[in-house]
Design a protein around this nucleic acid. Structure first.
Lengths: 229, 229
DNA sequence: ACACGTGTTGGATCGTCGCTCCATTCGTGG
DNA sequence: CCACGAATGGAGCGACGATCCAACACGTGT
């Protein structure tokens, strides 16, 4: 007689430490960081937390909710860390964009996540800061919305690219070195007659730094914004 | 005795019209356009084509292969349609960017797809054309790669945004009107003290044209690129 | 002490997905 | 005419997200 009713299955003892939404999100972030997007399954989460589905779904609406909360958690604080207000708007904008770039670079799955559900509250802070700083640059009225929107879209575009590259990296190749070599080789095989520019870009691929190129893009944008003033 | 061996199941007659990779991709595009990303399942595809899994997997490696082929199909021709070469580089770049924007706007799932597997051959054409035209603008050497990469990333970023918005639109709201109203109301509820810029942006949301704002962003970039010369 | 209610937990179970596997069929060259 | 390979249809597998409910802990009222 395992239990009273003779019907219910044998149950594991209730967990001692409290399960909270906070703990679930932290664990999810950990799994996403170590194994990528496809590593976060609810089954794996129940194993990792030594619990069941009911406990998780009691604290979280569904998987999208969990992913959004994880992305918010990672991005929150990005704007706060660079909002000292002492430097000039141009420097501040560069620092702001770079901090978001670094955050998504450290957690590539966030990029794919924001391209699925944009305008999360955490991005509102970013958008707000960008808009304010663009205004400080002297851009007025509707042009501010266009300029800020363009910059945010550029940053998110680069982030999505990096996230995709990181996914390829995490998949097949062993390390970044061999991956870049393989990519460079593939790109080098591109017909130089039909694709002279892409072929030339391929040769520059090995001595290429994503972070630097991102900053150059920000500078191009800022130079363009200066003409709106 | 339904059949000789007495083991095999009753089989439907073989289809008359030939099943080809081309037909499969066309059907997939049709399903994606009408029902969004989640509407394309292999099961639904077998029903629509009146066939089985084996036939489909004989022509297609897996679902990613199918999605990539569908995206390529949609994008192919975008560059060709604007490559007359008669106009000046600036006009040509605007037209090129706009044609990709329109293509992804008409097929929003392509945006989400490219953010998952970038550097598809179809995008090579786009990247090549952008690089060439940026060169025609007078930008030389490494700056060309940075400028072209930045512009491509901006376009893809906007595309991903639009794709995400289109997904929200296809989901809950009935039409674009009420959706924009709901969004504007939600944004209007944002604390004007904490988020003055976002709050101001919300009021401009109704009289806002994605396509126009996209073009303004392109112009900002082009103005910034002009300073590199 | 005891019963009750409410918030929490664990896990069996469901429907669906992408994909594999294999028996079967058709077309065609020897 | 037949053998063989390309093409086809569909049963079945494992994994997924999600639902549902019995079991549990614990504060509160009596």
């Amino acid at each position: 007689m395992a239990n009273r009713t003779g019907q219910g299955p044998a149950r594991a003892p209730r967990r001692a430490d409290g399960l909270s939404r906070e703990l679930i999100i932290r664990t999810a972030i950990d799994m996403l960081d170590s194994g990528g997007e496809k590593a976060l399954t609810l089954r794996a989460l129940t194993v990792r937390l030594r619990t069941g589905y009911g406990a998780i779904y009691h604290h979280v609406a569904d998987k999208d909710d969990l992913l959004a909360a994880a992305a918010d958690q990672v991005i929150t604080g990005v704007t706060a860390s660079t909002a000292d207000g002492s430097s000039d708007p141009r420097t501040a904008l560069r620092a702001l964009a770079l901090s978001l770039f670094d955050a998504i670079d450290a957690h590539p799955w966030v990029g794919a996540d924001f391209s699925r559900q944009p305008w999360r509250p955490a991005l509102l802070d970013f958008y707000e800061s960008v808009g304010r700083l663009v205004g400080d640059l002297g851009v007025q009225h509707e042009a501010r919305f266009d300029a800020a929107g363009a910059l945010v879209n550029y940053v998110l575009g680069v982030a999505a690219q990096n996230a995709a590259n990181a996914r390829l990296l995490a998949g097949g190749a062993a390390d970044r070195e061999t991956f870049l070599e393989n990519a460079a080789q593939q790109w080098a095989q591109i017909d130089p007659g039909r694709y002279p520019f892409v072929h030339a870009a391929a040769t520059h691929l090995s001595e290429h730094d994503d972070r630097e190129q991102f900053l150059v893009g920000v500078d191009i944008f800022l130079a363009g914004v200066a003409t709106l003033r």
